[in-house]
């Protein structure tokens, strides 16, 4: 018994020493903590974040066909679609699209059921706000820009929608609505993974390239504008921005590109965009930052 006791004592000392050594050795490893607001780890492409409505990345026209399948399938009943049948074309036309993100549980059923892959989950998860009402996103805040749509289409590996026959007036309406949401969502998408280098940002820039190529078709007036190529990449978003009123789609298409420099509309359009977002925007996408500087100046 005695020797057994002593043996057990030594055994337990050995074990404890082993444990202490292991723990001490852990202090030489690199910490796995991410300092979240500074660095956001890479988010998987199929991450189920905030819902959004994508547009055709090539043409910029809205993909929603008002079929209401998402509204029906939603377990939380957080989607509310307002549409009417256009007397001219005898087709459903989208008037408003509301998603209450306070109710949404991010199950992703609506994205699966959507026939046109219009409603998608974005990578945005920072939706904190001061009121419950501001969690109800309307069509304007939901709709993505062209570049973002392109980015998500590529990231999620979804087939690109076929462009509808060109139809400037209705097509520009959603694009105009997309502007503010895009202004907010783009930085987030760019912010998503700066730790591993600016890969997604680069992807976003890549995704913006087709938009650039498609731009002359959407807004031919801009082709004449003498500007640097990287600056051009972000033009459509900036272009659409001044035309914040969805009720006046004609203005946006007819107004010349000089309104890019118009800063009067900006405060109304980006009420929720925080300075940090702007910072991140400047860091991750210098061309955008330059653009923003230009706007502010």
């Amino acid at each position: 018994m005695g020797s057994n006791l002593i043996g057990r004592a030594f055994e337990s000392f050995k074990r404890i020493g082993e444990g202490l050594r292991t723990v001490l050795m852990h202090s030489f490893r690199e910490p796995i903590t991410k300092t979240y607001p500074d660095t956001v780890s890479q988010i998987a492409p199929h991450f189920r974040g905030r819902l959004a409505l994508s547009v055709n990345p090539d043409t910029g026209e809205h993909l929603c066909i008002s079929c209401r399948q998402c509204e029906r399938v939603c377990p939380d009943k957080c989607i509310e679609i307002t549409a009417h049948k256009s007397p001219e074309t005898n087709k459903l036309e989208l008037i408003d699209f509301k998603i209450d993100h306070g109710l949404c549980m991010f199950c992703g059923l609506c994205t699966e059921v959507c026939p046109t892959t219009c409603i998608i989950n974005t990578n945005d998860f920072e939706m904190a706000d001061y009121t419950r009402e501001s969690l109800v996103y309307d069509l304007r805040r939901l709709t993505l820009t062209q570049e973002e749509s392109a980015f998500y289409f590529e990231a999620k590996d979804m087939p690109k929608p076929k462009p509808k026959p060109p139809k400037p007036a209705p097509g520009a309406a959603p694009a105009a609505g997309a502007a503010p949401a895009g202004a907010k969502a783009a930085p987030v998408g760019a912010k998503a993974a700066p730790a591993e280098g600016a890969k997604p940002a680069a992807a976003a820039a890549d995704a913006a390239k087709p938009a650039e190529s498609a731009k002359p078709a959407a807004a031919p007036a801009e082709a004449a504008k003498p500007a640097a190529a990287p600056l051009e990449a972000t033009k459509p978003a900036e272009d659409a921005k001044p035309a914040e009123a969805a009720a006046k789609p004609q203005d946006s298409s007819t107004e010349p590109a000089k309104t890019v420099g118009d800063t009067t509309a900006k405060p109304e359009e980006k009420p929720t965009a925080s300075p940090e977002v702007k910072e991140a925007e400047k860091e991750k996408a210098p061309e955008q930052g330059a653009d923003a500087d230009k706007k502010e100046g």
Partner: peptide, 8 residues
């Protein structure tokens, strides 16, 4: 403790 548990 953060060092031992590989944190910051």
């Amino acid at each position: 403790l953060a060092l031992f548990t590989v944190r910051l």
